[in-house]
Structure formats: C-alpha cells, structure tokens
Amino acid sequence: MWTRLRNLIEPMNVAAYVAWLAIGMEIWRSAPSGTGVIAEAWLWPTIITLHALVLLLFLAGVLLPLSDSQRRVLIWIEVLLALLMIASARYTAIPVLLIISMAQNAQLYRPRQLALVFVLVNLAMYLIVRAWWQSQTPLIFLMINASFQLFAMMTSWYAVTAERSRDALVATHADLIATRSLLAESARDSERLRLSRELHDVAGHKLTALKLNLSVLARDPRWQDNEPVRLCAQLADELLADLRGVVQQMRLHDGMDLRAALTGLAAPFPKPRAHLQLAEDARVADIAQAEAVLRTVQEALTNAARHGNAENIWIVLARKDGCITLDIRDDGRGSGALRIGNGLSGMRERLEAIGGGLQIERGPAGGVQLLASLPVLA
C-alpha cells in the first residue's frame, strides 16, 4: 500500500497535477462561454464537476490495483470527459487534459496502436472545435495541441521503454548471478571430490605401503621389541583410519546451501521486494537440483515484476515429508485464468525431469502462487 501511495509523488504524476491545477485556474476564475451543448444554467457547475471527475479517475489509475485493460477503460473515460468539456465550453486550457490522457496511453499501447489512438482523439477534437467553437483556424488550434500531446506521448513512451530495458537488464543480471552461483557450487563440489580422490589414491596408497614396510620391520627379530617401530606402526594405523574418515566425510557432505545464491538472485530486483525464509536443513544434493530451484525462483521473480506488477514476493524453502518444498507467492494484480507460457512450462519440465513437480495457482487477490517439490536425494 505504501508503494502505491508513493506513486502519487512520481515526477510525471506531479506534472499532471500541476497541469490539472492550471486548467482549474481558468475554469474557476471565469464563467464559461457556452456552445449550446449544455444549458447555460448548468454549464459552469457541470464543467467544474467534470474537471474534478477527471482528477478522480487519474488518481484511481495511480492508486488502485488495476490491470492494463481496466486502466485503458479509465483513460478512455478521461478522454471522453475532456472532449465533452471541449464541446461544451470555449476554455482554451481544457484541451490540455488530452495531453495528460495521451501521456498515460503511451504507457499502455504499442506504437501502432498508440498512433491510431492519437489520430482518433485529435480527429474528434478537430471536428468538435470546427462544429461548436466556430473557430476560423481549427487546424492551427489542432496542430498546437496535437504537438504538445505528441511531446508528452514520446516522453512517456521513452520513460516506459527505459524502465522495461532496466527490467530486462535486471533479469539478465539475475540470470548471471544464478549461473555464477551454480558454477561456484559446482567448482566447490568438483574440488571436494578431487581432493577426496587424491587423498585416497595418493596419501592412502603411501600410508598403506608405509604400514606394510613397518609390519615387515616389526617381524624382523632385530626390531620385534623396538618401541619406536611399534609406535610408528600404531601412528600409521591411526593416520590411515583418520584419512579414510576425512575422505568419507568429504564425499558425504550435507548438500548445497542455497541461501547466498537466492539472496543474490533477488537483490537486483527493485520490485517486487523479496522476503526469503530458508530452512537450515533444506539443502539440495546435486547441481541439477540446485539449478532447478534457482531457475524456478528466477522465473517467479521475473513474472511477478513483468506481468503481475507485484510489490512483494515471499519465497519459502523448507524440508518436509522427505521432500524439498519451494513455496513462492506474490501480491500481484492479475485477473482471470492463468496463462501458462514458455517460462512456466519450462520450469515444470525442469522439475519433473529430476523427479519433482510444480503446482501453479492464482490467489484470491490476483497474485500467483507456485508450489514446487523435489525429492531428498542421498
């Protein structure tokens, strides 16, 4: 909720408030010159009411958890109200409301769609000014206002493009972090196995040879009662037993700890904010399981940021009933049935390939919950 309230003071929103106030200064200080669309007795209070309603619709789009389609509907209502005000009264500042609306549209439409919307809105304004304002230069009036709309649209579009590029860079950075963590863990695992083999094959072999030579020396009548020889044989036995214990411990480690990898994976995302709850005994046994967990979390973070517009995401890694469970949920603002895209399908296939599974659900508030499970391997 605090994030949505903070959206109120974003620079582009503040600029919209200033423009709305500037329009209001003309409306509140001077009686309107009517066009005959609305009766003179109701004209001024109607214009003031419509002007206030535009602000309320704008604030609803900023504060409410709306989908893109719902935001489009709100903005089209703003456009229709602005056109009604233009058709009803000859205020020169009212067309600025269309600049605000078109700047919002630039965040929701693709370039070709946005160009069509731009043409339709300005065609409607041109026809209104020509028919009801009885202006001698409607085309010049249109070009002035359309140029400001175009400037606002381009500014807004470039801001959205920069934000999307930043999100793509964050996702790529997260992917690199996950890959680096996997490579580091794989290198540590390989090094541990290499050292265990070296200790077993080299040191163990030489200690065994030393024991055999000491045994032969102890059976020599000249050294049978020699205390240093007996002590060396005992120490060789103990050292070989200790070495075998170390080798066994190196091979039977307690699994890979994913805490640092998951923390690093979530850190680059400015939104959603990740809340991690990782059990100490929830460790995976091999690289394949570690990669499945990291890629699942990475895909969930990307989807929550890109599609769900989530502010928070909760990631719980636990060990229960012989399984490693990964519970991920966000507070996104989606609606309708979930569409399983390539990312979620690939996530499920990756988990199933190593004996796990994945359930995907939409929460009552619109967020997405992922329930992944992996078998505990020896």
Rank of each mutant, 00 (worst) to 15 (best):
residue 349 E to S: 12
residue 331 D to Y: 08
residue 165 S to I: 12
residue 265 L to W: 04
residue 30 S to G: 00
residue 305 A to K: 11
residue 181 S to Q: 13
residue 247 V to S: 00
residue 204 G to C: 07
residue 325 T to L: 15
residue 283 R to T: 07
residue 77 I to G: 04
residue 49 T to V: 10
residue 3 T to V: 12
residue 205 H to G: 08
residue 141 F to T: 14
residue 171 A to Y: 10
residue 131 A to E: 14
residue 72 R to D: 08
residue 201 D to Y: 02
residue 311 E to T: 14
residue 123 L to A: 06
residue 228 P to I: 08
residue 146 A to Y: 07
residue 347 M to Q: 06
residue 82 A to C: 09
residue 273 R to C: 07
residue 10 E to Y: 00
residue 299 E to Y: 07
residue 31 A to N: 04
residue 176 L to E: 13
residue 111 P to F: 10
residue 80 L to E: 04
residue 65 P to K: 14
residue 55 L to W: 01
residue 41 A to K: 09
residue 1 M to K: 11
residue 360 I to M: 14
residue 262 L to A: 05
residue 87 A to H: 05
residue 68 D to Q: 10
residue 247 V to Q: 00
residue 276 L to A: 09
residue 103 A to D: 05
residue 364 P to C: 01
residue 25 M to E: 04
residue 10 E to K: 00
residue 18 V to H: 09
residue 357 G to P: 07
residue 72 R to E: 09
residue 344 L to Y: 01
residue 42 W to H: 11
residue 252 L to E: 15
residue 76 W to A: 00
residue 219 R to E: 15
residue 2 W to R: 14
residue 274 A to W: 06
residue 290 A to V: 10
residue 275 H to S: 12
residue 309 N to S: 14
residue 244 R to S: 05
residue 327 D to W: 07
residue 181 S to A: 15
residue 332 G to T: 12
residue 262 L to D: 00
residue 359 Q to K: 12
residue 263 T to F: 02
residue 58 F to I: 02
residue 53 L to R: 04
residue 242 D to Q: 01
residue 187 A to Y: 15
residue 77 I to P: 08
residue 267 A to T: 06
residue 317 L to W: 01
residue 45 P to M: 02
residue 177 I to H: 00
residue 209 A to E: 15
residue 80 L to Y: 01
residue 251 R to H: 04
residue 140 I to L: 13
residue 44 W to F: 03
residue 338 L to R: 09
residue 349 E to K: 12
residue 54 V to T: 05
residue 131 A to M: 13
residue 53 L to T: 02
residue 260 A to Y: 05
residue 200 H to N: 06
residue 119 V to K: 01
residue 247 V to W: 03
residue 123 L to G: 05
residue 310 A to W: 07
residue 318 A to E: 01
residue 146 A to P: 05
residue 14 V to Q: 08
residue 233 A to E: 06
residue 260 A to I: 00
residue 126 Y to S: 00
residue 338 L to V: 15
residue 57 L to C: 08
residue 175 D to C: 13
residue 223 W to Y: 15
residue 295 R to K: 12
residue 178 A to I: 13
residue 290 A to N: 09
residue 250 M to A: 04
residue 68 D to N: 15
residue 322 G to W: 08
residue 357 G to H: 06
residue 169 L to E: 12
residue 151 F to G: 00
residue 105 N to C: 15
residue 84 L to C: 06
residue 40 E to N: 11
residue 50 L to M: 12
residue 287 I to S: 15
residue 343 G to F: 02
residue 316 V to T: 13
residue 238 E to M: 01
residue 154 M to V: 13
residue 368 V to L: 08
residue 198 E to Y: 06
residue 368 V to G: 00
residue 103 A to W: 02
residue 120 L to M: 14
residue 230 R to W: 06
residue 282 A to W: 04
residue 31 A to V: 03
residue 314 W to L: 14
residue 17 Y to M: 02
residue 185 E to H: 13
residue 65 P to T: 14
residue 330 D to V: 11
